[in-house]
Amino acid sequence: MRLGLVIDIDTCVGCHACATACKQWNTSGTTGPLTDYRPYGENPSGVWFNRIRHYEIGDYPNNKTINFPMSCMHCEDADCVTVCPTGASYKRAEDGVVLVDQTKCMGCNYCSWACPYGARELDRESGTMKKCTLCIDRIYDEELEEIDRQPACVITCPAHARYFGDFDDPNSEVSKLVRERAGMQLMPELGYNPTNRYLPPRLTTPIPTDDVRKTDLISSVKQWVNKAIAR
């Protein structure tokens, strides 16, 4: 098995619900708590397993806003695991999930240096490295109904932009999506062979704007007056 996520950047609306759901589930999960620093003070900060960034692709008028959620990619060649001096970081042979044993970690930060995707964050309170567990305490929990045995971020996504599954199974939904929509890896040139894939935006024809009716002078003045006069 090779478990991981597929993230559809065509449909992701950038609402940060996945990050919030992740924080909510995992702060009381196996590697919790996800400590917050100054939560109600100035410059609040803290540990997150999942962060969403926003980019502009292309130049106006052929540009597009892209929302970009990123968590651990559960790489096949995970350098964060090989550089770890204590053996706290490990990759499970049975499903490829990369985890940190909180009882062994000495907080040297070296694994976070080796990770190109910024997936690892030091908890300054516990002094240990924390990262996405792919909700390991959820996906194998037989107390839950089968549909709920998925990572919190996947279940919560309102745009249905996240998929969880086994990449080793060619007939799984994630494998099919990667095949059909040319799912890509991030920074493949570094050779980490990340498991998580991103589905690029679908090709769309631009909506023509040349034929949009121009407003005449009188209605322009009316619009201006309506804006200028405060009610």
């Binding site: 695991v81 770890c84 001096p85 204590t86 053996g87 970690c105 000495m106 040297c108 070296y110 002094g127």
Partner: peptide, 19 residues
């Protein structure tokens, strides 16, 4: 080190880790 009480464990991944 953020958690120096585990520093002794740093000797056990000789096989893969330069640290």
């Amino acid at each position: 080190l953020a958690n120096p009480k585990n520093a002794w464990r740093a000797f056990f991944r000789f096989k893969t880790s330069w640290l």
